[in-house]
Amino acid sequence: MNKISGLVITFNESRNIVDCIRSLKRVCDDVVVVDSLSADDTVALAEAEGATVIRQPFLGDGPQRTAGLPYCRHDWVLNLDADERLEDDLADWLARTDLDALPADAVESRRRNFVGDRTTRHAGQYPDYVLRIFNRQRADFKPVVAHSRIQAGRVIRNEGHITHYSYRDYADIFNRACLYANWMAKDLAASSKPVHGWHPMLHGTSAFLKHYVIKTGFLAGLDGLTLSLGKALASYLKYARALEIRRAIR
């Protein structure tokens, strides 16, 4: 059987961390949790489940995940967010597949995203391929503050699934849009990319049309409309906030 380490980053994830770790332990004999100084009992719950917990002030999404890699005992790593779970098909594939024999440094799988107890194929919610399985000797996380991706050379695609409890409700969609937009704005403001006054509206409108029209969010009723508006808000605020940051340091 493969030797796989599980990796999770957390901040106040007491409602999710136990189920996440138990999901990882279906295929991992080693689980590392990098906690951003949670104020709840995330750490105690993780340690009770047998995870190795590293306490680390938040460095940004990518660097925070990278900080956990030296504590992983195995080269192959399965990285989940605390609100994600393995589904049976992906767990079964991992259990029977020799990862070292694959012509790949990383593996993509499909993800089902939920709003509350509902999921949809529209508005970019499915199949939403994500890269969660990788060899840490040959791949690493992009060093950005928000929505880091694994950087790998050879990537193959698997049709197994991850469940993602993305949003608790509609309010959570907009709360997260504001939070992530602020993080992404910091990366954008620090980069050399040009940002102009018309960019917030352009990118916000483009994000809405992409998710509501091109990715057929209109077929998902109010869920599809709300998700598309959330994506539009996040994109608009990313560019607006980046402009604000740059103006403040001039």
Results as ranks from 00 to 15, higher is better:
residue 101 A to I: 09
residue 81 D to W: 07
residue 100 D to E: 15
residue 107 V to M: 12
residue 99 L to Y: 13
residue 70 P to G: 08
residue 88 D to G: 07
residue 76 W to Q: 11
residue 63 P to D: 06
residue 77 V to P: 07
residue 100 D to P: 06
residue 91 A to Y: 07
residue 66 T to F: 05
residue 89 D to Y: 05
residue 62 G to C: 08
residue 69 L to D: 08
residue 77 V to M: 10
residue 89 D to V: 00
residue 87 E to H: 05
residue 101 A to L: 12
residue 71 Y to F: 15
residue 96 R to E: 11
residue 101 A to H: 11
residue 84 E to F: 08
residue 66 T to V: 10
residue 89 D to W: 01
residue 62 G to R: 07
residue 83 D to T: 00
residue 95 A to M: 14
residue 100 D to W: 13
residue 72 C to V: 10
residue 66 T to Y: 06
residue 77 V to A: 08
residue 105 D to K: 15
residue 94 L to T: 02
residue 62 G to E: 12
residue 67 A to K: 09
residue 113 N to V: 11
residue 97 T to M: 02
residue 109 S to H: 04
residue 106 A to W: 03
residue 106 A to Y: 08
residue 86 L to T: 01
residue 86 L to S: 06
residue 68 G to D: 09
residue 77 V to L: 08
residue 83 D to F: 04
residue 105 D to R: 12
residue 96 R to N: 03
residue 80 L to A: 11
residue 64 Q to L: 10
residue 88 D to W: 13
residue 69 L to W: 10
residue 105 D to P: 14
residue 98 D to P: 06
residue 92 D to A: 15
residue 89 D to M: 10
residue 93 W to K: 00
residue 71 Y to L: 13
residue 105 D to H: 15
residue 97 T to N: 01
residue 89 D to R: 06
residue 85 R to E: 12
residue 76 W to H: 14
residue 104 A to P: 03
residue 87 E to C: 09
residue 92 D to G: 05
residue 91 A to G: 13
residue 81 D to K: 12
residue 96 R to Q: 13
residue 75 D to I: 06
residue 79 N to E: 06
residue 106 A to C: 07
residue 89 D to I: 01
residue 79 N to T: 04
residue 101 A to Y: 09
residue 74 H to R: 14
residue 106 A to L: 00
residue 77 V to W: 07
residue 73 R to M: 11
residue 110 R to G: 00
residue 86 L to M: 00
residue 110 R to I: 05
residue 93 W to L: 01
residue 67 A to W: 03
residue 62 G to P: 01
residue 65 R to Q: 11
residue 86 L to C: 05
residue 96 R to A: 14
residue 105 D to S: 13
residue 94 L to E: 04
residue 83 D to S: 01
residue 75 D to Y: 08
residue 64 Q to V: 03
residue 73 R to N: 14
residue 103 P to W: 12
residue 77 V to S: 13
residue 82 A to E: 08
residue 69 L to I: 14
residue 82 A to H: 03
residue 87 E to T: 00
residue 69 L to V: 07
residue 89 D to A: 06
residue 92 D to H: 10
residue 106 A to H: 04
residue 82 A to K: 05
residue 109 S to E: 01
residue 101 A to P: 05
residue 88 D to F: 06
residue 109 S to W: 02
residue 95 A to H: 14
residue 110 R to Y: 04
residue 110 R to E: 00
residue 61 D to Q: 03
residue 69 L to H: 06
residue 65 R to A: 09
residue 68 G to T: 05
residue 71 Y to R: 11
residue 85 R to D: 08
residue 102 L to K: 04
residue 82 A to R: 05
residue 66 T to H: 00
residue 77 V to K: 02
residue 86 L to R: 04
residue 63 P to F: 01
residue 74 H to K: 11
residue 108 E to K: 01
residue 80 L to R: 10
residue 87 E to V: 05
residue 79 N to M: 08
residue 111 R to M: 02
residue 64 Q to F: 04
residue 62 G to A: 02
residue 76 W to L: 10
residue 85 R to K: 14
residue 99 L to W: 08
residue 62 G to W: 02
residue 96 R to H: 11
residue 100 D to G: 15
residue 76 W to G: 11
residue 62 G to I: 02
residue 84 E to M: 08
residue 72 C to H: 07
residue 92 D to Y: 06
residue 91 A to S: 15
residue 82 A to I: 08
